[in-house]
Structures are given as structure tokens and as C-alpha cells.
Computed example of a mutant assay.
Amino acid sequence: MKIAIVFDDCMRLGGVERVINNLADYFSDNFNYTIEVINYNMNSKKQNFIYNSAVKITDLTIKNTKKDFISKFINKIKMRKKLKKHLEKNKYDIILCMAALSNILVAQVRKGIDAKVIGTEHVPYDGHSLKTKIKRRIFYKNLDALVVLTQEDYDKNAKYFKNVSIIYNSIPDTFKYENYNVESKKILAAGRLTEGKGFDILIKCTREAFEKYPDWNLEILGEGEKKKELGSLIEKYNLSKNITIKNFIDNMEEVMKEYSFFVMTSKYEGFGLVLVEAQATGLPVISFDCKSGPKEIINNNIDGVLVNAENENEMSKAIVSMIEDKEFRKKLSKNAVINSERFRNEKIGNEWKELFEKMIKKKSV
């Protein structure tokens, strides 16, 4: 089976990019699929992900140094034509579009392309801008199937689009449990330093904990436009001795073993893959019950802790409680490892395989 995975930039650091890397390698290694990852706006300055040698990486980016509206508009038209020509020429069986903008782009150039086109969502239904929502309603009719990440998103999308299914994001086998360091006094958070990730809320929510337990600290791993602002907030609350912001690292599965627990204060998530990654390594997790992923990952007070969305007081108390209750952390760690097994590549990969085969069967009828 010949599969094209379409995205703007698969080498940029981020959750969707990690998912693409994981799926492409798994499909190639385990199902003997011919995989090509097609990028139409690749601007990463370095290669942040390593793909298997059998996976082909294609860059269709049309470089444009001019920033005026007309130049950008012309560039978009050229890029669409280039992508359409490439998709027509290479005769794929499946075109897998990653995230809404890629779904819309391929749906716009779909006419004349014989492959089955599957769209995927990585932002909750209500998280899209009005412009994107309108485009989705217009162009998603050209998709053969749409894959979402949560039941909540399924319920909303199934009202408007055909052939919607749920397939969770998966984690590679490199995320595995070896031991839980219950004596660690380090708290971990990770993600892009953007408004939606709520790191400003997290910083505020740790003040009570660090007043009581000044020998504990928080490390935030991430990069993004809010870095300077978050640094100023840390200084404002005199937390420089307790909170540090570091760049993303490649070997998260190794680093996670150094921490006591993981905290996520996102305002919304498409899924929350980093929660699963943390659980797989045995880290207890605390997360806001934001739309729309955490409640489908965490069983509250069994393998993690769910806090009402954006409730700063409740989150502050949850962090303090986690620090104070070593036995609770040990219980969560044990159950987290068990819970993470349902997100393993073998299970999720087979769900993708079933969908692909179903699509190909329809194509041949």
C-alpha cells in the first residue's frame, strides 16, 4: 500500500509532528507500507525528527521572500498547483492529511486524484477559528473519512461530516517504565510556550507549593513566543530559584524518569499525548479537565488527577497534595503504566490498518 502523509512541516517541534514521525515509522516497519511524508511549507531550521530510511521526506515548499498580500496569495496558488500535480502523478492508495489546514488544502485540490483521502483533527472542534470552521464545512465533503481523537470531538463532528471515527494518538515503545523515583523533588511540564498551553496559570499555581516546600522545583520544557513573558512572570513572583524554562529535548522518554510528577494546565488540547508519554514512564500526572483529551486519558485519582478546567485554586491544592502524599504518588505511578498500554503502537497501528483496508476495499468496489 502506498501512503502519502501531508503536513506543512514535519520537522517542526510539536505534538502533531511527533505523531507523524511515530506513525510513518511504524507503518513502514510493521505493515511494509510505502510511506512518503509530503511537506508544503517546510521552514524548520533543523531536522528535529529522525525518520526510518524507508520513509521518504518530500519538500514542496515554494520559497517566498516577499511578505505583501498579493505575493502571499500568488504563492498559495502556486503551492496548491504543485501539491495537486505531485499527488496526481504518484498514484497513492491513501492520502492521510494531518490537521485541519492540511485537510482543507488537500480537499481543495482533490478533483482528479484517485486516492482515498483521510483527514485528521488535532485541535478540538471548538478550538478552530471561525474562518477555519467555515472552510471545514465547505471542503470536508471532499474527504472520504475523518479521524478525530476523542469521543467529545466525534459527537460534534459526526453531526456535519461523513465517515467519522476515533483513533487515539499512540506512543512508541521507547516510552517505557523502568522505575519510579519517588524521592525526586522535581516537577515537569512540557509543551509549546503559547497562550493555549496555560503555562502562565501553572506558574501562578505553584506559588503555594514552593512557599511550603522551597526545596522542590518545576522545570518547563518548551519553546515559543511566550518565553520572555513567562520569564517575567517567574521573576514577578520571585520564583527564579524554583522554576526554570528549558528548550525541548530529543530524549523525553529518558528525562521523564528524573521527575516526581507531571503537570498540564492547557486551556484546550486536541488530545494531550504528553500525558500518555508521562504515564508510560511511570510519572503521576495532574491535568486540567480541559477540552477535549485529558478525561479520556486519565482515570481520576486512579492513574492521575483531573482538576476542573482553569480552576487555579484547585490546581494549587492538587500540586501541594501530590508533593505531600508519597504513597498516593506511588499508587498513581503503578496504575499510570497499566493505563498507558491502551495507547501503544501495536493497538493503535492496527486500528489505522483496519481503516486503510476498509477505504481500499471501498475504492475497489
Rank of each mutant, 00 (worst) to 15 (best):
E219M: 11
K45W: 13
A54Y: 15
T265W: 03
D93S: 12
A100N: 14
N48M: 11
N32I: 06
F343V: 02
I134P: 10
D8E: 06
K330H: 15
D325F: 10
Y259D: 08
L13P: 04
N301W: 08
K162S: 12
R342S: 07
F161I: 01
F27H: 08
G196W: 11
K185V: 01
S44W: 05
K185N: 03
F73R: 08
R342N: 12
G224Q: 01
K141A: 09
N179H: 07
N299K: 13
C97N: 07
I70G: 00
N311Q: 05
M256W: 02
D29N: 13
K81D: 12
K2L: 01
K185Q: 02
R137C: 08
M1H: 02
N300R: 04
P124D: 04
S316D: 11
I35H: 15
E229Q: 11
K67I: 14
T150H: 00
I94R: 09
V123M: 09
I360N: 02
I201F: 15
K361D: 06
Y177G: 12
K257V: 07
E219F: 13
A336L: 05
A190K: 02
K82Q: 14
M315E: 04
M315H: 12
A278P: 09
E277A: 06
F356N: 08
K241I: 02
G270K: 01
Y26H: 07
F288I: 07
Y168F: 03
I220F: 03
N22S: 04
F261Y: 11
K317A: 14
I201Y: 14
M79T: 14
V19N: 01
Y51I: 07
N64K: 12
K67A: 10
A280E: 00
